[in-house]
Design a protein around this nucleic acid. Structure first.
Length: 828
RNA sequence: GUCGGAGUGGCGGAAUAGGCAGACGCGUACGUUUGAGGGGCGUAUGGGAGACCGUGCGGGUUCAAGUCCCGCCUCCGACACCA
């Protein structure tokens, strides 16, 4: 046994032993209950960063803890390995293929993950860029296609010039920039593949209620993203034409206040309305200017509202009034019907617009205790009130009016109830090489033809040229492009777009159950055994990306009969970022701390311990080199505590006979068992690993103190303390605990032991310190028997001489005893 | 603007159900061990000479408030003309 803690030697030793012993292998159908612990798999960008270390350290504690608690834990790892950086590297350097670049990175990062001692079952590793995986990504695409959930349409889509590809709405973030590279996104009119996620809007929203184990924050973000809105559809006939303009409104009670109608510039009706009119030219150039701007600028709140009269009029179906039809930049074609009824008196946007263009303002809702005038009001009255100026509906409240007006419209065939969602369909095609090819063929005779399942995978060709042209290399690859039609056998062309990598990551957690399955997407019995994921852990940045897409996929898979769960992830933990000097670590800021260096200088145990100790998992974590030193010191301290005792303890039982113990021995046992309880609760109820670690530190401090004061009398007490200490620390610092476990004569791996159980009797305090307050201020602390009743406490406290002194000559109003805590004496 | 989250010593953070604010760690100071460096060990460490005062600010509820209620401020994050 060495007298110095040599993390290098020790970590290397155990890595080898664990690997050859298949310590972390988990079978498909064990006898123990199953627990699926999953962390979001990484993109193999090169090397691990601290965010990864944090994510995976948290997951590893959960996995090891659950294993020790008697579960069969599925704890897999893999790679989200399609994506742009690989292709960009190829374009930039020319001599490296994305596949090779990716493989190299995977090898590096896998090695790093192993060094950190994470308990993955590596036999289950998957990589989304592997043909054995993306074959099934393509197969799933076909299942969606066959159900009518994958379709092609021409639409104005988000285009990132830097990535040279389109993006889904969820991938445009912040001020309208690309989620990946933060470049401003443009609009382009292109023909693209979409998934009908909007068909699932209702279920995605309603089932958020099933997710009791998710942070409220994430559910609120998804709720808002889906954006359900209940309202009324109303049809306004166009004057002198057979056309009609449909609008969606949540305020049908304000319909008598309509003074104009607005269409989005892209609305197809615009062209029909302006045809042959004098305004036609001006409207066309306005429309093309506005729609080119893209949603970013256009939907920004500061953008000035602009509009133009089309020359057409439409008729309010309720009062028969004729109002002008305009086009305006503030109306979005993609939302609702792409048309809005203008009610300036009761909608702030309409109000601003009307004031700017001199359109009339007509009040139709009366506020409860206020008189408004159309000329004098300075903002719209958007609250509810009593309808007036509204014909037969006068006198109704807004609430009642909404219902009554809608019923009336429905009866007359002029409209009806309608639910609208903000969510749009998921754009999944990407104009890039390094992704799963969309398994579709275009045939001059047969049109769009899906590749038959038995011809999957559609392999990515390896020999293509990577040039900075912004065009997919697949377009220049005749071997790939030219094919024959699966239906008629004639000449046909392949789809050259590849799939959004979020599609690859929407189902990987199912594949882990059957990673090498060649004949089907997965073995259903295995999926049933493990899913849903009991604990999912990852960054909150995926709140409406990966997490929404995965929920959508799961619902589709459920409908297809491929899985039996409605939701993929029962419990979700979103960890905070790792910061240095208050900012996110980044190369440009030069504040990056590399996990490699930390592992080299201090070892994996220190790295893990620090990251778990420095902050609770959901919060951001401020990196501190000194904090790392502190954790390293702690492990050294642990080493110096256990090693000298090891030989003495190794032959000794930890079964303590409760009789004949000294006060100190009872105290030691109390601390041991209290710590077991504390850590068990901290991990299982709250994920408060930071307080768990601090409790372990306290136990170490306690053992030191006990050892000094007590020599080696009753070694069972010491053995019990040390043994439990190692078991409790094992999920956090797997290497050093394994080494010390061996040293104290532990049988088998520490990681295969049962989680310790606390003994209530050993834990119980005999005396507690309670506080004596007078009028809520602390005056005295005394020790008192734990068993003392409230009555006894009060009496005992009042009998204290110092208290007698304090309350002399005063009238006791009330005495409030709180057993085990305090006694408060209220005096006057 | 709307919706979330946070604000506690010199620093990271603790206080789990309204009951001792500051656990644990870092830093700092002093002492000790050592030939020295490093490391270890020990003591102290919110402020104030003190009665006392202290959890972003101002009110409130309560015997008792970091914790509950009302009104603000600051920071971070998400969404942002959604009809």
């Amino acid at each position: 046994m060495k007298d110095r803690y040599n993390h290098h030697e020790l970590e290397e030793k155990w890595l080898k032993k664990w690997e050859t012993g298949d310590l972390y292998r988990v079978g498909d159908f064990g006898e123990r209950p199953g627990f699926y612990c999953l962390e979001m798999f990484p993109y193999p960008s090169g090397k691990l960063h601290m965010g990864h270390v944090r994510n995976y350290s948290i997951g590893d504690v959960v996995a090891r803890f659950k294993t020790m608690q008697g579960y069969d834990v599925l704890h897999p790892m893999g790679w989200d390995s399609f994506g742009l950086p690989a292709e960009n590297a190829a374009i930039k350097h020319g001599d490296i293929h994305p596949a090779d670049w990716t493989t190299e990175n995977i090898n590096t990062m896998r090695e790093q993950l192993k060094q950190l001692g994470f308990s993955y079952d590596w036999r289950r590793e998957v990589a989304t860029s592997h043909p054995g995986y993306y074959k099934w990504t393509q197969w799933l695409f076909l299942q969606l296609y066959n159900r009518g959930l994958a379709y092609r349409k021409r639409a104005a889509v988000n285009w990132c010039t830097s990535c040279a590809t389109v993006l889904a709405n969820e991938q445009v973030v912040g001020e309208g920039v690309c989620e990946r590279c933060k470049t401003e996104v443009e609009k382009r009119e292109l023909e693209q593949w979409f998934f009908r996620i909007t068909d699932y809007a209702r279920r995605l929203l309603d089932d958020l209620n099933l997710l009791e184990g998710w942070p409220e924050k994430v559910k609120i973000m998804q709720d808002h993203w889906i954006g359900r809105s209940e309202g009324t559809l109303i049809k306004f006939p166009v004057a002198g034409s057979n056309e009609e303009i449909a609008v969606f409104t949540t305020r049908p009670d304000t319909i008598f206040g309509v003074t104009y109608m607005v269409l989005a510039p892209e609305h197809p009706l615009v062209e029909k309305l302006i045809e042959g009119k004098e305004h036609a030219g001006a409207v066309r150039s306005f429309a093309s200017r506005v729609s080119r701007l893209g949603e970013i600028v256009r939907t920004s709140a500061d953008t000035e509202k602009e509009g133009l009269f089309t020359g057409a009029y439409c008729i309010n179906p309720l009062n028969g009034e004729t109002v002008p039809v305009l086009v305006a930049n503030y109306v979005l074609y993609e939302y609702g019907t792409g048309a809005v009824m203008g009610v300036p008196a009761h909608d702030q946007r309409d109000f601003e617009f009307a004031r700017k263009y001199g359109l009339p303002v007509r009040l139709v809702i009366k506020p409860p205790e206020k008189e408004l005038g159309p000329e004098t009001m300075e903002e719209a009255y958007e609250e509810e009130g009593i309808m007036f100026n509204s014909g037969i509906f006068d006198g109704l409240t807004s609430g009642k009016g909404k219902e009554t007006v809608t019923d009336y419209l429905q009866e007359k065939g002029l409209g009806g109830r309608r639910v609208n969602y903000r969510l749009r369909d998921w754009l999944i095609s990407r104009q890039r090489y390094w992704g799963a090819p969309i398994p579709i063929v275009y045939c001059d005779n047969c049109g769009v033809v899906p590749v038959p399942e038995n011809q999957l995978p559609v392999l990515l060709p390896r020999n293509v040229a990577f040039k900075p042209t912004g065009q997919s290399p697949l377009a220049d690859c005749p071997d790939f492009l030219q094919t024959s039609c699966p239906t008629c056998g004639g000449a046909a062309k392949r789809e050259i777009d590849t799939m959004d990598t979020f599609m690859c990551s929407s189902w990987y957690y199912y594949r882990y159950t059957s990673p090498r399955e060649e004949n089907k997407v997965w073995d259903k019995a295995k999926v049933n055994r493990w899913l849903p994921v009991n604990q999912y852990i990852g960054g909150v940045e995926h709140a409406v990306l990966h997490l929404l897409y995965s929920r959508f996929f799961t619902k589709v898979l459920y409908d297809l009969g491929l899985v039996e769960v409605m939701e993929p992830f029962t419990n979700l933990l979103t960890q905070g970022m790792v910061l240095k000097d208050g900012a996110k670590m980044s190369k440009s800021k030069g504040n990056v701390v590399s996990p490699e260096d930390i592992i080299k200088n201090y070892g994996a145990d220190t790295a893990r311990l620090f990251i778990l100790f420095a902050a609770p998992p959901e919060r951001d974590l401020e990196w501190s080199d000194q904090g790392v030193e502190g954790c390293y010191r702690f492990l050294n301290r642990l080493w110096r505590l256990v090693v000298p005792l090891a030989d003495n303890l190794s032959g000794i039982s930890d079964q303590v006979l409760a009789q004949d113990l000294t006060v100190e021995e009872r105290q030691m046992r109390r601390l041991t068992h209290q710590t077991i309880k504390k850590i068990t609760d901290d991990i299982s109820d709250r994920f408060n690993f930071n307080t768990a670690v601090s409790a372990i530190m306290e136990l170490v401090n306690g053992i030191y103190k006990y050892k000094e004061e007590n020599g080696n009398h009753k070694p069972e007490v010491l053995k019990e303390a040390v043994k439990n200490l190692l078991l409790l620390l094992a999920p956090f610092a797997p290497f050093i605990t394994e080494e010390l476990w061996e040293a104290i004569g532990g049988k088998g791996s520490v990681h295969k032991q049962s989680w310790p159980v606390y003994d209530l009797e050993a834990m119980a305090e005999e005396e507690v310190e309670i506080v004596i307050q007078v009028n809520g201020r602390i005056k005295e602390r005394i020790r008192i028997n734990t068993e003392a009743s409230a009555q006894e406490m009060s009496e005992y406290v009042l009998a204290q001489p110092r208290i007698q002194q304090l309350i002399k000559g005063k009238q006791i109003i009330k005495v409030i005893p709180v057993p085990g805590k305090l006694v408060n004496i209220v005096v006057k």
